[in-house]
Amino acid sequence: MDILIQQFVNALSLGGTYALLALGLAMVFSVLGLINFAHGDLMTLTGYAMFFAIGAGLGLPLAIVLGIACATLAAVAMERVAFRPVRDANTATMLLTSLAVSTILHMLFQNLISARPRAIPVPSWMIGAVDVGGLAIGVIQLMSITATALLLIALSVFLRRSILGIAMRAAALDFPVTRLMGINANAVVATAFGLSGLLAGVAGVLWLAQRGSVDPLMGFLPVLKAFIAVVLGGLGSLAGAVVGGFALAFIEVFLRAFLPDGWLPFRESITLTLVIVLLLVRPEGLIGRRENVR
């Protein structure tokens, strides 16, 4: 039983990171119909900003703030420079644009910084564990769960209470009519990118705290996981992205923990098979809406 609860906490912590990433991806998708494959590279930018900030002796808290700010600004800049010119183009064009942005960033990182990983030291208190009712919960895990919960609550308040938040939800449903409300389309899209950058930045800090280094290609795998989570939860649904993120983490952690040894090599295939089966049963995703599937 204890081990079950322990694994539950493990999944909750991993799911938080997935959820933040997936939510950022979904936010941009819901407004523009674009899966931004450069989303993961925003995490990489957070990493490099932290690396340089720590190198400049600014200390970890300031480095974290700068890292998140850097991802947020970069996301807004990415929209302005790369995606706005192709906003009215078809989906394939936007998708290819995002892949191009990602590739260019990889090459810039590899050639201007280093192809080798750069260390991001984390203080030792962050690496310990705290005892919660007999469970050993890692400090990073605890931070991850707390940060996810706070961010999701704040975001939910923003989306429900503020006009811009309501406009973003409206834009996800019907962009042209949202403009008929006098809402500035550029403001909505820029906000969506800014928030997606903020989410990627926070997820990046949590991810970096675990991995201890930043390298040019580190964003690729997380964006893939986030993409699976978004599809699993329901394309176009923000709540779906969060649910999809947690669902994917639970599937992964529980398979890794409880699959018999001989089955372990197939855990990734089993994960993806489960995702496919879920999508066959519910093509609109776990909580997506049928009419919203584009």
């Binding site: 081990i3 991993l14 890692g138 895990q141 992964e252």
Partner: peptide, 21 residues
């Protein structure tokens, strides 16, 4: 025992919990 991981998986909590047991 032999544990397996996927490169880039970030989360080793399941493996670590197993080693502890």
């Amino acid at each position: 025992a032999v544990g397996e991981y996927t490169m880039g998986q970030q989360d080793f909590s399941a493996e670590v919990t197993n080693i502890g047991g």
